[in-house]
Design a binder for these strands. Sequence first.
RNA 1: GCUGCUGUAGCUCAGUGGUAGAGCACUUCCUUGGUAAGGAAGAGGUCGCGGGUUCAAGUCCCGCCAGCAGCUCCA
Length: 662
Amino acid sequence: MRCIERGPTLLGRARGAPYAWGHSPVPTGRDGGAGCPRWGRSLKLVPRGFSVNHSSSGSGASADEALAPAVGGAVAEGPFPLSTLRHSVSHLMASAVAKLWPEAKFGFGPSIEHGFYYDLDLPVALDESDLKRIEKEMRRIAKASPELTCTEMPRDEARARLEALGQTYKVEAVDLIPEGETITFYSHGDWFDLCEGPHVDRLDRPFAFKLQSLAGAYWRGDEKRPMLQRIYGTAFWSEEDLERHLAWLEEVKTRDHRRLGTELDLFSVHAEAGAGFVFWHPRLGIVRHEIEDFWWREHINRGYQPVYSPHVSREQLFAVSGHLENYGEMMYAAMDLDDMPYRVKPMNCPGHSLIYKTRGRSYRELPLRWAELGTVYRYEKSGVVHGMLRVRGFTQDDAHIFCTPEQLPDEIAGVLDLIHHVLTTFGFQYTAYLATRPAEKSIGEADIWERATKALADGAAKVGMDLQLDEGGGAFYGPKIDFKVRDALGREWQNSTVQCDFNLPQRFDLEYTDSSGNRVRPIMVHRAVLGSLERFVGGLIEHFGGRFPFWLAPEQVAVIPIREEHGEYARSVTKALRAEQFRVRCMDEPSHMNKRIKAAQHDRVPFLTIVGAKEAEDGTVAIRPRGERGQRTMSLQEFAELARGLRSSRSLDLPNWAEPAP
RNA sequence: GCUGCUGUAGCUCAGUGGUAGAGCACUUCCUUGGUAAGGAAGAGGUCGCGGGUUCAAGUCCCGCCAGCAGCUCCA
């Protein structure tokens, strides 16, 4: 739509549940035929916890290159690319399934980012225990019939053979292969599969694999077609690599924001309230407050002005904006008040447009930069809501800039600088993509597109930002720059965006008077830095693994008196720090000290201070930063100074006083 | 929305037809402890909700709600 959308929608074609959105391989039909797709450039969810890369046929190492640094080890080179191994293992798996269920029909079975899958049509629903059986059969087949052979076959014969086998999906796959391409089959033992290859030569080479999960998947990704059963698995050239990969998945699980949300008392969702609605608990409320505070300071410093618009408006407003027509199915149903339909807003831009229109505007007052943390509601299908990362109600950090075409490059530069500043403050690395005019439908004159696209590029050049090109990836209403951030685990996801809009000013008939007295349309820039507070903070929880930096931490210091008699000193320390607006937890309850230490550590409090007789006498605190970072005793004033520094600099690190390793 | 799975104490889970269990958390008492869980006792559950089968349902069946893994859609 013409306004900012969060996350995956920003990329138009992107999708995802968890958090990894980005470019990843998907089969594009032929170029490969059954089981051997060539990877197309398409946006697709990759399994949770994985980074996403462009991948092309035969370059399967890319995924592991991304993974390796994060898990501290390289992935073993095999005699063939890892993607080839995985592709062959998917065939091996299919052959095992065929043995166990002779009536099975097969769909596609490619290697993917971190493994492989195969889509199957079976008379029975598989469960986890079947995976073990299949693995066992795979091992048997690999031993019994290790040799792979490749056979070329004329189209008619290929078709006939597959029909004879009752492999209806494969027959369809043959028909997807363009005329003139060679049709090949790969086989080992009884297995005989339409496939482009390449494959490993033998299945008795040393490698390690694991079948991981089951899921439903529509044949050829089309919900009007039958749903097949998909088995996901992965394979490596060594046990160690497989183990490391599985350990990595475990690490990802411990960082899952939903799990940490419960464990750290951060947020909840409720059946009573409905799916996709997030309840922020006090401990996360303060985190959000700090983020919003930071956000507003940055915006006001950069000439943005706060505006506020209502959550509900007459439906007519969204008819004018075009949302009803183009975005209607994402909107909550109308409610009737005084026989008039009203809607909950899915975006903030119509409201801001109304404010613009309240009086005549002069070029002298442009650019106008209006910011709102606007809460919007959008209907998401029940199967896709996910923790804080994909919800039905969220707060967008929205702003609209109304400017002249001449001002556009500077405005873009300003936004990019702001985005850079905010993202790096949270410790994210990012990649920026310039999305140009889509090939199909789009509005606006060619020269306006050209100018706006150039303005985006010039703005980036002005602040020294590199842009990747996303050809044809723009919105129908204008070009944009999207940002993908890379989190602490190397996973990519997307929140920030800058979008030029030629459509909404026209729909709302927005104008200003230029220096010659002519009425002209302003250009409207939609932009989001955080995207959605919900998604951003959900991602932040995972990025930090619940270990928020000092300035954000729900509790910044835990004060633990050794004995009850030291409670008074602990309370005076607490009081002194709270007087400086630090968030301090005074753990003076009469339970065992070690228990309180454990509790504070569980909650990932950045600083732990134990106070006893010594400290009370000297007016000091024994400070231990979170993690294995040693300990120091210092005066309360010294510590306050240190804490003030960490807070004002929004430091991502805590001091490290640990003895260097010998 | 679709496919499959799941829903038992605040949390993590055990309990596959005979009127509910563990660990942690919580409360109380004891312990006065110098850096990663001291001890004991207690309290806490209409087994997601609604129907059905049965002498009897946490357990079997149906529907709904929510969650999980994916798929699909998302201007």
